[in-house]
Design a protein around this nucleic acid. Structure first.
Lengths: 188, 188
DNA sequence: CCTATGATGTCACTCTGTGTCAACACTATG
DNA sequence: CATAGTGTTGACACAGAGTGACATCATAGG
């Protein structure tokens, strides 16, 4: 069903990340993003609820992917193993060739308070979804919420390291190592 | 140094919480808040960085109070005891006669995504400050960050319960009980 | 009484975000 | 090939958030 120039949404995203990198998030107007994308500001707001959201495109899909991986883990798998499956599956979103864009995106978010707020609520939403998925596996409270929070903590740490390392370990490897560290820390 | 009608800031806060309760956060304009406070919208933005901030007045003082309590805990006190001191000291902000206003404020925040975002970043900032205070007590990483996150978790749970109970336990009592629960959960 | 100072008001302005309707491209159907 | 239908986009008007610049006013202190 593609009409006109296709991929309006991805053109918006590309134009936005370019401009944010060039002149900063606050200095970039939605009109400027739209102009670079060959569209209008009104159309921008048909694709994104607000200006911040253009930087958080994959979050719903990432969440759904991790929830699915958690649900499809073997019934006899422990809570930690199910969490590990979800964290590993998230690696589908973090190919090594996307690392430069991820790094740029991270630096833009780090530089702006509004964007940090938005990222926090995305993480909180993801945590709540994972906790719900754990409860549906029969994990009780507060274990489910605690495990979900721990999963988010590992995710943040691993993602930050993956973004920070220029040509280092893959996301999958970092997640494995971070999980192992958490296990030794938590082990009584 | 009081001139004009005093307490402009607290009048803004009172007018805002009233209007938010009456017609909702989004339907309330800054101009309406200012009118009820007997001032102008321009002056509102001299007291508050943005419209959301009017609901988060005490956060810096709360944070400073908790950090101070943490720093002043006996040097021989354990990490958990220092955290407990900070959480207990926070009770100075939660007198039982402020409970109705706290409840109204909480319901306003819960009903609006932008306000939930702002609350999340306030909690994250508080967590970072507590972790820093713990490191200054000689607690290493990742213990300091983990303990700070646990403290925030207890704070949120305790505050939510205190707000929810009409004429129930005091904040101090709830914090004590929540901490005891966390201890039994974490105990190996 | 007079003046320095700080708090407030006024005005003009940019930008975000929304509602509404017209114009348009494409698809399907006859 | 014509035409109706569907969904996308543009154009316009608009309300509200937030800011900068400057005027105005109340008061403290001499």
């Amino acid at each position: 069903m593609g009409r006109w120039e296709p991929d309006a949404e991805s053109r918006f995203r590309a134009a936005a990340i370019e401009l944010f990198g060039e002149i900063g998030y606050e200095q970039t107007t939605v009109a400027a993003i739209a102009e670079r994308a060959g569209l209008t500001a009104r159309t921008f707001f048909r694709y994104f609820a607000d200006k911040r959201e253009v930087l958080f495109h994959g979050s719903e899909r990432l969440q759904q992917t991790m929830v699915d991986a958690l649900a499809q883990a073997p019934a006899e798998a422990s809570t930690v193993d199910a969490i590990a499956a979800a964290l590993t599956k998230a690696g589908d979103f973090f190919d090594d060739d996307r690392r430069p864009i991820a790094r740029l995106r991270s630096s833009v978010i780090a530089a702006n308070a509004d964007l940090r707020e938005r990222e926090l609520i995305k993480m909180a939403t993801l945590s709540a979804a994972l906790a719900q998925a754990l409860r549906e596996r029969g994990v009780g409270e507060p274990d489910a919420s605690l495990a979900a929070e721990a999963a988010i903590a590992v995710f943040r740490v691993a993602f930050a390291q993956w973004v920070g390392e220029s040509e280092g370990r893959s996301y999958g490897r970092i997640v494995k190592e971070s999980l192992a560290r958490l296990r030794t820390i938590v082990a009584c």
